[in-house]
Design a protein around this nucleic acid. Sequence first.
DNA 1: TAAAAAAAGTGAGTTATATCAATTTTTATA
DNA 2: TATAAAAATTGATATAACTCACTTTTTTTA
Lengths: 235, 235
Amino acid sequence: MSIKGIFPIDQWDFESESILADLPSGDLELLMARKSEQLYKKGEIIFREGAFPAGIFYIVNGKAKKYKVDGEGREQIIYVANTGELLGYHAILSGDNYPDSAAVLEESLITFIPREDFLDAIKQSDVLNRRLLKTLSHEFAVLANSLTMFAQRSVRERLALQLIVIREKYKVDFEPGQPVEINMGRDDLASLVGTARENVVRMLSEFKEEGVVTTKGRKIIVLDVKKLIKIANYR
Amino acid sequence: MSIKGIFPIDQWDFESESILADLPSGDLELLMARKSEQLYKKGEIIFREGAFPAGIFYIVNGKAKKYKVDGEGREQIIYVANTGELLGYHAILSGDNYPDSAAVLEESLITFIPREDFLDAIKQSDVLNRRLLKTLSHEFAVLANSLTMFAQRSVRERLALQLIVIREKYKVDFEPGQPVEINMGRDDLASLVGTARENVVRMLSEFKEEGVVTTKGRKIIVLDVKKLIKIANYR
DNA sequence: TAAAAAAAGTGAGTTATATCAATTTTTATA
DNA sequence: TATAAAAATTGATATAACTCACTTTTTTTA
């Protein structure tokens, strides 16, 4: 029972299709000519805000967060990237340094593609070019959506919404029909929702009392997606 | 006395350079071949969220807001576009309908460019292509910045920050050295800051007492940018 | 220029959320 | 498996921001 349709998740998630999926083999070879693979341990940082973008990263397997840290050290998660997604290309295209940091949420296998190879591939490949324009403009719409949510929704509504969205990302790790376990630390969940850890925990207990979610250790299992949609107050 | 440097406004504003500025004349001709111009009266809507994107819009002269309206009819301004900027191209590139609405903030002269001409121009022009990739990825960084602000900053800090950013946009309408008058309705200012009109008004009075701003009718004049930066608590 | 309409501004009461301090549970490590 | 460390949870209190009701000022229009 997918929630697409009743809840247009495309509006909340960048990855309606991957940038590299089904790329003409020549273009892909060019891109991957000098790649290097690395296994990141949980919590390891992929790149840091402000650093020179030496290349882009492809998540072969795992999950990563894109985030910003403000003056007081508070972390704000912009996006959670999943297996198959690309990281770090915005900076190379814009000509700025990395505008945000990225770190791995669980043990992840990640491919590094040098800056020059990425730029060459863009020059060569019309498909990649179109794909990037399409992805970037879609990402913009998704982010504008998030912005509106942060500006107008209550913490309770935001938590409900993020649980729906994040559940979809953990779904791929479970057999269809099996309960999806969201294995995310409360601090990360809080910085995704834009509030303090304590508030997330308190509202999770409320959701538990209301029969919307349950927990298994630190893992969160959504019992009633429709109720969550109602709480999120999404038209 | 520009605030660039002490306050890196590029991080808060898309338009470090225009997409169409200095475009090779051939490319520009192609783009403008079948344009049509129209004078919009204050408040008029340029396009509506959810509509099919029939083309893109170029602001020859004036200002426009990009905004979203939520279920309860509350408006959230995503961005304020100025003379020389392009509107509505995200939807055409992403293949979705318009993800947001646009309306004119003051009487504005706007050029309409049909969808097909824009798509043809992209096919033909490498410069336009690169320009779009660069702009889109920069825009993404700016929006991520705004997102963080909404998630973490107080209304007071957000208002201070937006006054700085918005002042830069009204600056072009005044002689250098002359006081810049921000001529924006309180409702628009509120939906830019993400709060209710009453809160904006209250905090503007506070700012007035503190000698940071003054008003002239409904117009707002910033007296002390540095103090605003301090209030915005921007590192 | 007067009247009407729209926008801006003020005040008081209420609520959601942040913050601080402590305890309990879970996970990692020896 | 016991112990230490880390993470999650609960409670109490403070406060920023929202909402509603109303007044005053500014702008529009007749």
